[in-house]
Amino acid sequence: MTLTPPSNITYEPRVALKAHATTNDHIDGAWWPHSSQLESEIRDLIETVSERINPVVRVVFHENDWVHSLSRIQVDNHLIRLDGYRYWPSGVVKLRGTNDKQALTIMVIPPNTSTPAAATILAAASNRRDNSTVGELMELTSVR
């Protein structure tokens, strides 16, 4: 079942980021979208990270994690490539800026995750001392 938020309701983005981006492919934070509709959800995430990456020019994700149809979207007069890959790790999105030094690796918490479980993951993923993998973070709450 795909959860889709009604278009007339505005939601606050549910994102928690580490204070500073990691220097490798460790998780920089977590995001708990309201649905699996990539084109509608990604805009809020991009706005949330705009102080760290501006503009975001590319979003990389596992192609089966999201319902999507567009290969590009426009946000604030910037064209953003949406690149879904079969071999990209599930549960992770990578936001890239105009160079490779501008990048964030963000864990995606499934939309149907309970509030207490998502809160636990958001807190752990944004802890600067936490170097957990996506799998380890999901195990914190026995979410699979």
Rank of each mutant, 00 (worst) to 15 (best):
K101E: 13
D28H: 03
G29T: 07
D25C: 09
V59L: 05
S114E: 10
T10W: 09
T115W: 10
L79V: 15
E63D: 12
E51C: 09
N64K: 14
D28T: 01
S142P: 04
V59W: 01
W88F: 15
V15H: 04
S50F: 06
E136T: 09
A117C: 09
S36W: 06
H20G: 07
F61D: 00
L3I: 15
T98L: 12
K101R: 13
T133N: 05
P110T: 02
T98Y: 11
P111A: 10
A117Y: 01
M1D: 15
K94L: 11
I109M: 02
K18G: 06
I53L: 06
K94T: 14
V15R: 04
L95M: 07
V75K: 01
T2Y: 12
V75T: 09
R14C: 12
P89I: 02
A119V: 07
T105E: 09
L45C: 00
G135D: 13
V15C: 03
R81W: 14
E12K: 14
R58G: 00
Y87K: 14
I46M: 08
L82F: 04
G29E: 06
Q37K: 11
N112V: 12
S114N: 04
V60I: 15
L140V: 09
K18P: 05
L38M: 09
T141A: 14
I9V: 15
N8R: 10
V57Q: 02
L104T: 02
L17H: 04
L95G: 02
L17P: 03
T10R: 14
K18L: 08
L104W: 02
A123I: 01
L3K: 13
T2N: 15
M1N: 13
P5R: 13
G84V: 01
H26A: 13
I106R: 00
H26M: 10
D28V: 00
